[in-house]
Every structure is written in structure tokens, then in C-alpha cells.
Nucleic acid binder design. Structure first.
Lengths: 264, 264
DNA sequence: TGAATAGTGTCTATAAGACAATATCCC
DNA sequence: GGGATATTGTCTTATAGACACTATTCA
């Protein structure tokens, strides 16, 4: 899912230190001091109608009851952060097997009224049709348009809007999280192959361009976009053509991992 | 320090919901389930002799006693992550008032042999002279050369070397943390003003170029580097000149915040 | 045939790399 | 003066944007 995985820690073969360390660990009491709660919050993101959209879940319990939130949940004691994010995405948003990456960890003292909660935020990228079909095990979800009033490239104050353009009230600091998602995606789009994650496996170059425009929030030059995408060798033509379009159909492309080892 | 700060959550003025939520919060017991420990680990980074260096502290206690680690500590219950990082940097590394930014959160289940520990990693950028002078309240520190065997742009397996080129054994997953620091710095260097953080307030363009070369791990073209730095308006000439150099002295420049609001 | 978009070719402006020439310091 | 680096200027090359033109589909 991400490039971070634990490597076994090579232990120095020193018998005295080993016994010493075992004794220390046996006496260690993790409950000696109070610990904060740790949650993961996942923002499932897609593009549609030239804008970024996110799946939000309605909170049925306090705190922030009735507001809209990211898919979140507490991290289990025997569960890595990545695993927790995957689980939350599957149970709270009904999505599995999609691109998922850690974003940032939010740890201000009063960000949750219950108690001290530190939240590790993730974003998930998925094509629009799949996000529309997503149904969680229970609860109400909405695919909200994420509106970032233009503040340079920053991605500042964020609004979530429903299909009628009405603002959806967001829970906790989730507006901040979504703002940072937008900023991160804008920053990564140029050098990381993330646009493909927002499309079905086969796509036209125009669709890819529209994804880029939706993420960046501005038009991109058609000619140089096509040139640079093709020149970088990130896509391969399939020979198939678009169907059921009222104009000349475009060729379908697919994403190719250029040299096997690519950053996630 | 970073751009993330809590905004007050606007509460819907609904009297019944309010009372409802107060009752819920009063009954909430944060200790109902076991919680992981949360730490911050800070990597103080500088450049010297054409390479990245990091300040490491020797562990005097188990676990990983005797090994070298980042400056770390547990996050207090009434302390934000950023505040915790600042405190740890001041007490464990003897550095304050320098650039500090969150990197990534490491949460694999067995990354610490004591118990479940989730670590929010930060990096701090400081000029070389200042890092050399850093003295923590107690404990032994070293400024280690960080050696990243070339793996494309990735920043992979990492070695920490002392002044004699001997490998310093690293504690926990801190080699992974340092690898990600290098990768992040290489990625940000081109578009974020972080090179300046690794230099004193006044510096020559050659010094800035040497910083870029140390971070990127490769030579950069002198002419176009000077051109692009000057064209972007990120630096301003001071009129002062370098002193005590055995060749023609270069002009000293300083970093200028181009239009007030710049990302951190 | 007309509307709409796909796809190609060419020209230009801009940025990056290469290289040469001159300037300025210390020894 | 000699050695070293700073600084400026010019030429070449790669890339991005602009624009024109042809191609292909459906209505």
C-alpha cells in the first residue's frame, strides 16, 4: 500500500545486553501513563464534472452528530496504521483494493471534544463510477464536491457541497484534512502516477487530462499534456476505441509501470 | 511551524443536541480500551562536505541500548504534536527556533519491542555550524553522515557514518525514517524554500548550490542554478561580500519571502 | 453536410545546459 | 603574475504553449 514496511531490527549478539534487555522489557508497564487515542481517517477521493469529490459519512453518534465526516475508526492494538486505514475504508466506506496513502497526522489537543485523539489521515483514490457504487456496511454516505476557494496553490479553506450545491457541515477538523488532501494531490500530480488511480483501467487521454484539470483546479494545455504523457512512457495504447460517444472516438490507453519499481 | 492549526468547530445552535452531546461526553470513558503509546521522533538535518548529516543521540536505556536514535519522546496528553516535537528537539538535541516539519507517521505493530508505539516523525533543518554547537541537557550526541546508496530518486536503505566512516548502528526503524527524510527533502527542494533553512542567514550562491547538491546527491549545473534562483526572486543581494576566502569573494545573499504567504 | 472532438505538424517563447570571456580577490 | 573563484554574456538544445490543419464519428 505504501512504501513503508518494517524491517527486522538486527540485534547485536551480546549475551549480557540481551538478558539485560529482556529483564527491562518484562518490567515495562505501558499503562503507567495515560495515552492518547489514535484513529485513522480516510478520505476517499475521485473526480467528476471537473472537480474533486470525496465520500463522506454522516455521523450518527456524538460528538458532531449529524455532521459529515471522513471514514474513521480507532487503531487496533495489533493492527498497523495501513491495515487500520484499509479496514476503515472497507467497513465505513465499502471500498477495498484501491490506492491508499498516508497524508498527515493531526494532533492538536482539542480537535476532538471527547478526549485527546490523534488522527492519522489517509487519502484513497478511486474512479468515479466505483465511488458512486460504494455502499458501507451501515450508515449514510454522500459523494460531496470539494470546493477550494482559490488561494494560490495552497488549498485553503474547504467547502463540501452536495449535488444541489448546498454546503454539508463537516465534523471535527475534517475540512483541514480535505484541504491538505487537495494540496498534496496538486503537488504530487506532476511527478507521481496518481492520475491513473482516479480512472478506470482503460481511459482516453482526454479523460486523463480532465482528471488533471479537476485536481489542479485549472485548465492544462492539451497539446503539451498529450506530448508529455506519451513521452514519459507512462501510458500504452491498447488499440481499442471509445464507444457510444457522439463524436469521433478516441483511443483507449492503460497505465504502465515504466520500470517496475515506481514510488507508490 | 507547520500550516496545520486547529480551527474552532462551529457548533450548531440546537439546544437539545447540545444537552445530548454534553451528556454523552460526560459518560465517555477514554480508558475503556487500551491505547497505543505515541511518540515524536525528530531528525535534525544539516549539510556538510557535500552530504546530508543528521544529529543522533545515543540510547542509554533499553530498548536498543547503546544504539543511535533520533531525538524522541512521548507525546504529552495536553501537548500538540508540533509542540511535542519542539520540546523534544530542545531537550534531547539542544536546538530551538529552527525549521521543523512533520514527515510521516510510523505505526507498524512491532517497531518497538516494549509495546505498541506509534511514532510521528519530524525533520528539522539547521545550518551546519549551529548543529555542531548543539548540546542537549544530557546524553551523548553525534552528527552522522547519512549515506543513501543510490536507488534512483527513492532514498532507500540508509547508513549513518561517523567522522571516520564507521557505521553507527541505528535504533528501531530509524534508518527507514532517515531514508524517508532524504526522499522528502529531494522531492521538496525544487519547489519549496527549504535550502535556505540549511544555511546561515547570509550565504553565497555557491553555498546554496552546495546545499542543493548535498541534498540531491548529484551535481547541479552552476549557470542554470544561479539563473533560476535569481529569476525566482527568492534571494536578495545584501551588498556585502564573503570574507577570509583565498580567492575572489562572492556576494552574500539572503532569503526573501517572495510574496508574504509561502508554504512552510 | 455540420458539429464535435481526435490526432498531427509546425512555429515560437522560455528554460536548461555548455562554454567562453572577463573580473576580482589572495598568495 | 599565478591560481582560484565570481560574474556576465552568448550559443545550443530541450520543452511548453499556441495555432493550424486533417481525420473520424454521429446526427
Amino acid at each position: 500500500m505504501t512504501q513503508r514496511t518494517a524491517k527486522p531490527i538486527p540485534q547485536k549478539p551480546d549475551a549480557r545486553d540481551d538478558a539485560d534487555e529482556r529483564a527491562f522489557l518484562a518490567a515495562y508497564d505501558a499503562a503507567e501513563f495515560p495515552h492518547p487515542s489514535v484513529t485513522v481517517d480516510v478520505a476517499p477521493i475521485t473526480t467528476a464534472d471537473g472537480a474533486l469529490h470525496a465520500l463522506l459519512v454522516r455521523r450518527t453518534e456524538h460528538p458532531a452528530k449529524g455532521r459529515w465526516a471522513l471514514a474513521g475508526g480507532f487503531v487496533g492494538m495489533k493492527e498497523s496504521l495501513d491495515d487500520a486505514a484499509e479496514r476503515v475504508l472497507a467497513t465505513k466506506a465499502g471500498l477495498s483494493g484501491i490506492f491508499l496513502e498516508q497524508l498527515y497526522t493531526f494532533g492538536d489537543v482539542n480537535r476532538d471534544p471527547r478526549t485527546r485523539v490523534i488522527s492519522v489521515a489517509y487519502y484513497a483514490l478511486v474512479d468515479h463510477a466505483r465511488l458512486r457504487r460504494a455502499q458501507p456496511e451501515k450508515g449514510e454516505v454522500v459523494v460531496a464536491r470539494i470546493d477550494v476557494p482559490w488561494e494560490g496553490e495552497a488549498g485553503g479553506r474547504v467547502l463540501a457541497l452536495d449535488a444541489d450545491g448546498c454546503e454539508l457541515p463537516l465534523a471535527f477538523d475534517h475540512a483541514d484534512v480535505l484541504g491538505l488532501v487537495v494540496k498534496r494531490l496538486r503537488g504530487k500530480l506532476d511527478y507521481a502516477p496518481i492520475g491513473f488511480q482516479l480512472l478506470p483501467r482503460r481511459f482516453t487521454l482526454r479523460q486523463l487530462q480532465e482528471v488533471h484539470e479537476a485536481v489542479l483546479g485549472r485548465d492544462v494545455n492539451k497539446d503539451s499534456f498529450r506530448r508529455s504523457v506519451l513521452a514519459r512512457g507512462l501510458v500504452a495504447a491498447t488499440g481499442e476505441m471509445e464507444k457510444d460517444v457522439p463524436y469521433r472516438p478516441a483511443e483507449l490507453y492503460r497505465y504502465v509501470n515504466p520500470d517496475r519499481a515506481r514510488e507508490s
